[in-house]
Nucleic acid binder design. Structure first.
Lengths: 99, 99
DNA sequence: TTGACATATGAACAGTACATCATATGATGT
DNA sequence: ACATCATATGATGTACTGTTCATATGTCAA
């Protein structure tokens, strides 16, 4: 039980660390709003270099916040599940609130 | 509007960065569960050195996630508002879920 | 004021994360 | 097989973050 809590805390830190970067947060927010997208689409929309984007997407995949599937020669990224979207939406809502 | 969104994103990254550390997340979770506490109480309960705890609390204060008030010679820390608690609870819930 | 207690701050070092560049892999069309 | 497009990976320098130690500030009681 204590162990369980400790594990949840570790996992939560992983999730938060992963989201705690402007590009990665923007990617997740984008996927939450408009649904799945390819790497090049994300690069254009968020104005990020291909390599950098790829590294960030890897990070997001490792943390299991997004999933990827091949679409011809492109890769289509999507949120791993709705929960992630909720966390991001809540945080953004909170961030927007107290200005 | 775009500007507003960008600001919210920056602020969100600040919040997430601040929460993305085991000690700080544990502090916020503790304050969420059991209410306000002094520094020494937090140190004991979470087994963290006084100086380290103080540095982390400073971080949390700078991000306006917690507030502090004097209580004699001690300092009593509490969550800045309910929203922070929600974010943490949601994230922990999500983290605990997919095990 | 002095001493003890509670917390905060500053500096230095160690470990991590990030941006960038070069290159590799994988898929498609010819 | 080759050229091209789309994405991924590896290496490296740099900057940031966190821990620790030493010291400072602030509060209380005698």
């Amino acid at each position: 039980m204590r162990q369980h809590e400790a594990l949840a805390l570790e996992r939560a830190v992983d999730i938060l660390s992963c989201l705690a970067h402007p590009v990665r947060l923007a990617v997740v927010a984008r996927l939450e709003r408009d649904g799945a997208a390819t790497v090049s689409t994300l690069c254009q929309e968020l104005d990020v270099e291909q390599s950098a984007m790829s590294h960030h997407l890897r990070h997001l995949r490792d943390a299991e916040l997004v999933i990827a599937e091949r679409r011809g020669r492109a890769m289509r990224y999507a949120l791993a599940d709705a929960h992630v979207g909720h966390i991001v939406r809540d945080t953004l809502a909170h961030a927007a609130e107290d200005d």
